[in-house]
Design a protein around this nucleic acid. Structure first.
Lengths: 348, 348
DNA sequence: TTTATATTCGCAATCGATTGCTTAGTAATT
DNA sequence: AATTACTAAGCAATCGATTGCGAATATAAA
């Protein structure tokens, strides 16, 4: 079974008393072969169970119909969805995806970039890790003549194609919604501020408060509360304050919003009456908690498709194209956890 | 930016007045080079920002440190987790993953197999699509000398390495648990029976009933109820029967269990008092529904790791190894939705 | 000093497919 | 009949790294 010979175009050529070049041309639908020999070649190729060796073909042609993807974790919903969207489009174009996960580690991210460069991928699509340090490895991608698209978490001062969510606007919209619902003291759970997406969400929160002439209170902004557990801890602290917040915007993820909800339940704080809760990401479970959680949908599968289309449309053209930034508008999904005004929770 | 020249070993060789073979040997830590030249080569390689061309290397050496993975959907938790586990191990061995999704389509599955064969991957890891027709494409993988590991959904009559869950046992355990809790009429939501995993779960259900001398009632076994919507429809039908079930085992997925739960809520049927519910897969949300849902954990990340280890350990050896089947024991996670006996739902 | 052994390195073929160029053969044109 | 135009197919180089073999040089042994 091991290392057996696979049929090559030479095998086909020999069998038909042809030259390998003719076989190659026949298989690639090149017009420099007669219809008769093409037929013959295709027939014997099928008979001998010939499979093209993409390695050889790619080496010769100098490019690889393969796209590399680097994400922090493959099995986080957002990234899994983006990859699913990517695959959908790239598959149709005959491209393959090589997937790497950085595990939020900068070292691994750099290593992954290097293997992808070695593989001669046509494009690298990346969402940088949480302990992102500097962008030399990304610059190296460009230096090797490989296309680069950053998405979601992007290195701000590196000019490349980018597909991002308008985090600031979404965040602003969410907080405005809370204010409209009558919440007065709105707390924020923040993510690591070295990632631009979390900074933008914080900015949106602050902008919304200012717009409505609310005071921006540092004690209501909790750093690094981006897991369910950290969200729970932060909530306990917030609700035990002398003047506790009456709403919490878990800007990091729905998981931290879930932590908020659980603590509220345990402490007997009514949601949404006494505490409004808003998450981020529109994870499947936000629809089915009691009460269901208001959140922000990032159109993740579409994001994947957008990224892929960007590659095939914009970057496929021969002329040098200026890096473009695509801003996807996330959508606020209002559910029961913030509907203080219209009780009865009829909205789904 | 486009099509620029990348540095090759020839560039390094020329600069150092060496032959490319020496450069190659130096870079590959071959002992047939002096320490001095190795130093020199490594230094200039770094200076010139040399990156190995894996295409050329793989072509010459006849193998590709790449593993192909084909799953129905990348963004289903179970598969995403398995892939994450796979990546974890393969990364450490310097292997890359090429990911394809079949979208439950047989045609796409066959096409994906073909591209992976063309790519000369060392191994193909597959969980077959729902409309799996025949295994000729899988046999073709073996015929091309490529390793093959099937997991979860496997083609029964093809002898290859397999990593599966003991679905029948898990299913039996779940139903036995329901019986122990005092449920008397236990319904089953089935998945497509052309997939062996769903057949096994049904077998486990029947075996448990028989073991406890319960009657096996065809009217309580609902076919193809494997999404949330189909689960809901089935539940409505079941609960409107003259003699409705007092427990439903959604053997297909937690999503269908969720459909059951929602219908129960709407119809005012108390869970777990009047209706016990058990799902399958241990999706994240099962922990946080009200009541939380009893389910079965498949150790999905570990499964991925097991598969990868199987490849590196068993199949790496030169001697022909007999295909081996690894059976992973899923774990019943008892939560509130089936705790009729001990009310108060103190268990998490 | 001479012979034997070990190191280090170059030469050239190889992996399989592609492609520019050339040649042979056929058809069309005058 | 002769020249031109065109088609079909072969030749050989190429992509970049690897590797068996042999040559040259250095080192050790006699």
């Amino acid at each position: 079974m091991k290392n057996q010979k696979r049929t090559t175009i030479y095998d086909i050529a020999k069998k038909l008393n042809l030259n390998a070049s003719s076989v190659s041309r026949a298989l690639s639908n090149n017009n420099n072969v007669s219809a008769a020999t093409r037929e013959l070649v295709l027939k014997t190729a099928a008979e001998l169970n010939y499979k093209q060796n993409s390695l050889a073909s790619n080496l010769r042609r100098g490019h690889n119909k393969t796209i590399g993807v680097i994400v922090p974790h493959i099995n986080q919903n957002f990234f899994a969805d983006v990859i699913a969207g990517l695959e959908e489009v790239t598959y149709q174009q005959g491209y393959n995806l090589i997937i790497c996960q950085s595990n939020e580690s900068y070292t691994r991210e750099v290593e992954s970039v290097n293997t992808l460069i070695n593989q001669h991928v046509s494009c690298i699509i990346i969402s940088v890790s949480a302990d992102f340090e500097d962008d030399s490895h990304l610059r190296n991608i460009l230096a090797q003549g490989i296309q680069l698209i950053q998405f979601d978490r992007v290195a701000d001062n590196l000019e490349t194609f980018k597909v991002v969510n308008d985090n600031e606007r979404a965040s602003m919209e969410a907080v405005s919604h809370l204010i409209t619902q009558g919440y007065q003291r709105i707390a924020l759970l923040e993510g690591p501020q070295n990632l631009n997406i979390f900074k933008q969400r914080k900015d949106g929160y602050i902008a919304a408060l200012k717009k409505h002439n609310f005071e921006v209170l540092p004690e209501l902004m909790i750093e690094n509360a981006w897991t369910k557990e950290l969200g729970a801890i932060a909530t306990r602290k917030l609700l035990n304050m002398p003047m506790p917040p009456d709403a919490i915007f878990a800007s990091t993820s729905d998981f931290s919003a879930l932590g908020v909800l659980e603590v509220a339940h345990k402490m007997g704080v009514m949601v949404p009456e006494k505490l409004g809760i808003c998450g981020y990401s529109n994870e499947a479970f936000t629809e089915i908690t009691t009460p269901s959680i208001t959140t922000i949908d990032q159109h993740s599968v579409d994001m994947g498709k957008t990224i892929a289309n960007l590659f095939f449309q914009e970057m496929g053209s021969e002329k040098e194209v200026r890096p473009k930034i695509v801003n996807i508008q996330p959508k606020l999904i209002v559910r029961s956890s913030t509907l203080k005004n219209k009780l009865g929770r009829s909205v789904r």
